[in-house]
Design a protein around this nucleic acid. Sequence first.
DNA 1: TTGTACGCGTTATCAG
DNA 2: CTGATAACGCGTACAA
Lengths: 345, 345
Amino acid sequence: MSKKKNKVVTIYDIANELNYSPSTISRALKNHKSIGKDTTKQIQETAKKLGYRPNSLAASLRNNRSNNIGILIARINRPFISSLISGVENSARAAGYNVLISQSDDNYKNEVANAKALYDSRVCGIVASLSMETKNADHFKQFLEQDIPVVFVDRVPSDLNSYRVIIDNYSAGYKATEHLIQQGCTRIAHFAGAQHLNIYKLRKNGYIDALKAHGITPDKELLIYMNTMSFEEGQEATSKLLNMKNPPDAIFSSNDTAAVSAIMQAKKQGVKIPEELAVIGFNDDPIASIVEPALSSISHPAMKMGELSTKRILEHADKKIEQGVSEITVLDTEVIVRASSLRKK
Amino acid sequence: MSKKKNKVVTIYDIANELNYSPSTISRALKNHKSIGKDTTKQIQETAKKLGYRPNSLAASLRNNRSNNIGILIARINRPFISSLISGVENSARAAGYNVLISQSDDNYKNEVANAKALYDSRVCGIVASLSMETKNADHFKQFLEQDIPVVFVDRVPSDLNSYRVIIDNYSAGYKATEHLIQQGCTRIAHFAGAQHLNIYKLRKNGYIDALKAHGITPDKELLIYMNTMSFEEGQEATSKLLNMKNPPDAIFSSNDTAAVSAIMQAKKQGVKIPEELAVIGFNDDPIASIVEPALSSISHPAMKMGELSTKRILEHADKKIEQGVSEITVLDTEVIVRASSLRKK
DNA sequence: TTGTACGCGTTATCAG
DNA sequence: CTGATAACGCGTACAA
């Protein structure tokens, strides 16, 4: 037996079966008001009987508008991102939309190519979080020019006005630092990410301002700039910090990976957590609850950010938006206090 | 200023510009052999100049074949799955395909609905890993009937013949158990997942046969059946096991989440790992390296499984496959030995 | 309430 | 090597 494709049923087949015109079928299947109740019912039943399945490709072409939402992120297999995607997917599917994903591997060229691919496949909207390398967002203009909504999440560009769904990174950095100060820490180090990305710059600013607000002069030696904030970078930085003449008594890391590596490195060097070194991370990844002592962190409502991103896209069609003006949605973060930073009771 | 859509350029616009026919433009843009070198070059340059972007919706409709690969999984935000997706996405995009995702939340009805949605959006192939609840795979037949390749990964159905990309779960279960035996353990417990899923059944069978092969009689009390293998289920089971008159000296868990919870629960009860209780998990999730002592596990080549799944789909078109006959790809696993099971040196 | 006719953008076929 | 034509399946003015 060779390949055998069963014939695909179209609205024409239903039309023939019932001696209606294709347009009547089309309308009935969409519950158009102008078609009689009984006619509609009959048509829908026959459609089901014949095994009719709508061809959304054809509908999209006709409407010049697909029901696919595109996602453009750096890497799928990270806790924050996969939760974000999960939120987009759930809410999109509930509304009858599909989700197209693309990852840039934190590479700018890939990001540009992916944006192109998503555009060419005629997505009806796009959710994007920039790659580490991205310093300009011109590749998103093609969407805006066609009035396709772009929602930037988390790692957002500073030079392009579009929808944003973000957290208040400045305030989160401030709160994290203040928490450490309240625990009695005075020499607080900070692991900062690439500064051309707003999120890391703002967390750092929050850190610095919190120090100043509590009468602590920021020490440049305690401010560590990292590229990728990997486990290895965290280990190395921690080792250097602990070997200083005047080592820090706390670390606020801009992500959990580096924070966890700090805890593990400190323990390896015999430094007690949190007594000698308090640590707080960012994101509240699963590893934060597993490391010992458990890592304090800033919780980031990833799933919800995804849901809100979808919402912005779906709402967009209904709105009359002035070009160049867009909404910014800011979500709350929470300081999750665990053993790694708990010095006082 | 109100919404302003720039005109979209089509092959007709290029045709008008250059006084060629649309068919010539179409062919030139695809580097068709029959078009002259210089004509092709001229057309491609003009296309670029005018800002032409292909409409893949139209092409897909015409060809009755999209370039979208669908993914159907239970949950995106799990390490194994997000790596799998990552593998599919990378290889698909490299070949010029897009990836549509859908998650069932381990719910059968959602899975059926998602399969329908992916079918309706005319994917050219699908990669699927079943939900926990799924006991029959009839909802995948619609694809096979249209000769749309379905690749089952990891959690595969037992009642439907299609492509499979899997690991040898029996052998992995055997190896894990044997490793514990070699460390001197004799009362080895097993956390088994839902038995209607092949992967868990096979791991359990491997466990039982390994015991027998080494002269150990399986003890029913040490075989714990779980539903979701969550952290909580693992904690509870561990607590019960440790409170037995004759507690186990090792646990082989079918996933890392439950294994990590076992370690943490054992420590809480003052049981020493690995001296009094050796533990090995499955999947080699990130948490395995973070928990203390670090968790031994079975590594699962998720990314590679994704890449191979894409490959099967892309190859499918070229092949003459007999209906009802499909290839099975079995990948190697590796026992990753860490401190949680290392009793001998 | 239902039907007619056309077009969405592309590509395959056939003709030249 | 290039052009004309039809078709993919659907949606919608317009007509009846």
